[in-house]
Each structure stands twice: as structure tokens, then as C-alpha cells.
Design a protein around this nucleic acid. Structure first.
Lengths: 119, 119
DNA sequence: TGATCATATGAACAATTGTTCAGGTTATAA
DNA sequence: TTATAACCTGAACAATTGTTCATATGATCA
């Protein structure tokens, strides 16, 4: 177990006021965890390739596996994860499932990320 | 090895035109990898707590370890990663290092992420 | 109904990750 | 120079991750 706030600060904690102020505005664990899951979902090359492809065009699993150069099984596994995290959605047309980005936040995140990477 | 584009598409590939169009606009591997590293860096609860703390206030390692309730060593390891990925920067004042967010993209990404999580 | 196509799933494996522990740096001040 | 405070680092470990392989759905059509 970690020592409590008070325990630590009796020993050493440089800026007590700053710290307690910041602590009051920390996010709840479940929010932080959801946020971590979201970014984690975007933290894999294959999934980013999938997402970038879907930025341009809705696509089925077979197409996606060709576009991102990965097996259909691998793509399907990744799509399940992206679905769970609400990054993509799909519509069915007969046997074929067409995947697309779930909402505009994903596009925004992708765009902002690209800007950061391109300095 | 994966079969080549042509190999696959001779066998089965539903929407050949769509696919080759999307393929032409795919991002280069190094861009995709950098982007993945960026999001991966934001895909951990401890690092998100650190980043969120720094959104409010520049802080030293000791303060941060109290705020995010983690050991100084753990925080230091995470800060190194965040530095490498250019998510945070620091300034020195005597023995103390004050960390802060590197640029406004990080704030934007955090904000957009929060919006998505809060539906 | 049975055959086939598009996709999903479960188990298993190597690879990666985050933390802890035990030192090691670097800058300040006595 | 020596002691101390603030921070960093490397090794090691359990836990998590992404892929592959084999198999299972579920929808369509003959």
C-alpha cells in the first residue's frame, strides 16, 4: 500500500499548498481509466492504420485487412476493441459489415495527434 | 510474410477501387509509429494523472508523486517517457526540476479525449 | 436443406509494459 | 570537501498486449 497523503507530506513534500490545490481538481479514477483506455486504443500502429483508412471511407473487414496489410483475423480482433471503446461503428449490408468512425472526436484526436507529430 | 497487395486481391477483395484509393492516402510507417507512440504515452492512468496535474500547474517530481499517489521512482520513469515523447518539458531551479506540458497540442488532445469519454 | 462467404472468437504464445528495489547522479550548502 | 536533498537509472518481475491458428457464427443463395 502507498502511504497516505498526510504521511508523505509529513516527511517531505515541497510545495504543500500547490499540491493540495491540484489534488482537489484531480479526475476520478473511472474517468482517468476510461481516458486511458481511449488513448490506449489509439496507441497501436495497426489500429491507427484502420482508423486512418476509415477517416477516408467506410470499409468492410476484408478491404481493411488489405489496406492495413494485416490478416482478417487480426483486423477483426482490433475492430472488436475499437467497437468496445466506441471508436468505430458499423452497419450491415447482407453478409458485409461496413465500418466507419464512431464520432467526430476520433477525427479530432487523430488530427491533433498528427499535428503534434509533424511538429 | 504477408501476401502482397496483388496476391490478396486476386483471391478476394471486395471493393478493389475503394481499396486502392484508400491505400494511396495511407500514412507512412514512421508517421504512424510516431503517432502510436504519442497515443500510447497517453494510454496509462498514472501518466494521465501526471498530465492532468500539469494542466493546472507546473510541479516538481516530489509534488507529482504525492499528487498522483505513486512512488517518486515510478513518476520519474514515467516523466522520462513523457519527455522523450515531447509531452512534457521542464526547467531547473537549483536542485528542483519543474515539469509542465510541452505544448498546446497535449492540452487539446486531453480535452478532446475527455469530451469523448464524457459522451 | 446444405454450401459458401464474410466475419467473429478462443486459446496460446512471444513481446511489451509499469512498477519496485537498490543504487547512482547532480546541485547546493555547510 | 562532505553531507544532503532532489531526481535519475538499470535490472527484474508480474501483468498486459497483439498476433496467429483453428474453429465457430450468421447471412445468403442454390
Amino acid at each position: 500500500m502507498n502511504p497516505s497523503f498526510d504521511d508523505i507530506c509529513q516527511v517531505r513534500c515541497i510545495h504543500t499548498e500547490k499540491v493540495s490545490k491540484v489534488r482537489q481538481h484531480m479526475l476520478q479514477d473511472d474517468i482517468i481509466n476510461s481516458l486511458a483506455e481511449l488513448f490506449k486504443s489509439m496507441g497501436d500502429p495497426t489500429r491507427l492504420r484502420i482508423l486512418h483508412a476509415l477517416r477516408q471511407q467506410e470499409l468492410c473487414v476484408c478491404d481493411l485487412s488489405v489496406v492495413v496489410n494485416s490478416s482478417e483475423s487480426a483486423v477483426s480482433h482490433q475492430l472488436r476493441l475499437l467497437r468496445t471503446q466506441k471508436l468505430v461503428k458499423f452497419r450491415r449490408e447482407g453478409k458485409v459489415l461496413y465500418y466507419s468512425l464512431d464520432d467526430h472526436h476520433i477525427e479530432m484526436l487523430f488530427h491533433q495527434g498528427l499535428e503534434h507529430v509533424n511538429e
